[in-house]
């Protein structure tokens, strides 16, 4: 600023003292002052640029620090170990359940899990044609007694089960279940595969994930068992599956992992009994939908052909008629086909 006002005053003085010396002086003065100005401004520009960059990087870093990181409400132990992703055959898009495995899994459920866990949403009738024959299911239903409708005197009697009845629960109610299990409620397993993150992988890992003894330093509460896959690592259910606990009717060796795999697949079926049909229907829909889509693309192109291939020619009035056949200047639509 100072240098510039000096310059201006020199110019004002200039015309008055019209001599070469002062002109030279003023020129040299202006030259030197503008160099100083440039030096000062380039320093400022550098500082400003660097500052702005540092501010930008800093604010991004601060923002990332605040909002960019994962926020975990729980420690990894409270979260539970993530289950291994197993290559389940029945979860592939084109595969049904292996119904022989479902049958084995139901056997495991009945012989092991059913003493603590209910499976309230599964009626005997849905086992028919999936896991057992009608006669087997009927015989199974008749093993249990169910309440009748009130009779003429308002009494409720007992009758043997029918296909339309639901699988019986091991306990009369949740309170009884808690009382029998140290205060912990064994949850209903009907929808368990859908109800837990990791689905089949989680349940398989949970059932097979009990270590011989808890790792050193792990705190396990009285009455709980250590399982790294269970959120919190202390689970009220002890290890239930041991080699050869059940005897499979089809001769499959009943190892712990075999039983865990079968019962997990069975629980997946109980949570999603419609899976087989859903997948098959999905493929059919995609096949038909693909044909219809191709047809609609073809129809669209067919209908648009005249519009897409027409050519608009403008012949300016008086100008060289490009199209001699047109008698007067006009906009002409020309269809190329």
């Amino acid at each position: 600023m100072l240098a510039r006002s000096c310059l201006r005053s020199t110019r004002l003085v200039g015309p008055v003292a019209r001599n070469a010396a002062s002109k030279t002086a003023s020129r040299s003065a202006s030259t030197s002052s503008s160099t100083a100005e440039e030096a000062a401004s380039s320093w400022k520009t550098t500082a400003l640029g660097s500052g702005a960059t540092a501010f930008a990087i800093g604010s991004v870093a601060w923002y990332y620090h605040l909002y960019g990181q994962n926020v975990d409400a729980m420690t990894p132990a409270e979260e539970g170990l993530h289950p291994t992703a197993y290559p389940w055959e029945h979860t592939k898009w084109s595969k049904t359940f292996d119904h022989q495995a479902l049958r084995r899994g139901f056997q495991v459920y009945r012989e092991v899990c059913a003493s603590c866990h209910s499976l309230k949403r599964i009626p005997y009738r849905s086992l028919v044609g999936n896991i057992m024959t009608v006669d087997e299911a009927k015989a199974l239903a008749e093993e249990n007694e169910y309440d009748t409708e009130p009779n003429n005197e308002g009494e409720i009697e007992k009758r043997p089960g029918k296909l339309s009845d639901y699988l019986p629960s091991p306990y009369k109610n949740d309170e009884a279940a808690r009382a029998a299990n140290n205060g912990a409620l064994p949850p209903d397993l009907s929808l368990m595969v859908k109800a837990r993150h990791g689905g089949c992988d989680y349940i398989f890992s949970l059932l097979t994930g009990y270590p011989e003894e808890p790792p050193a330093g792990a705190v396990v509460q009285e009455g709980l068992n250590f399982n790294p896959y269970f959120p919190g690592t202390g689970i009220a259910m002890a290890r239930v599956l041991y080699d050869d606990l059940v005897e499979y009717e089809d001769g499959t060796p009943a190892t712990t992992s075999q039983m865990a795999k079968d019962v997990t697949e069975f629980l997946h079926w109980s949570a999603e009994p419609e899976m087989d049909d859903r997948k098959k229907m999905g493929w059919k829909v995609m096949a038909i939908g693909g044909v219809l889509f191709a047809l609609s693309v073809w129809v669209k192109r067919y209908k648009w052909t005249p519009l897409k291939t027409r050519k608009i020619i403008y012949t300016p009035p008086g100008g060289p008629a490009k199209n001699p056949s047109s008698p007067r200047p006009s906009v002409k639509m020309n269809e190329r086909q």
Binding site: T96, D98, Q100
Partner: peptide
């Protein structure tokens, strides 16, 4: 065919 041996 794809699910041979798997279904009921």
């Amino acid at each position: 065919g794809i699910n041979k041996g798997r279904q009921w």
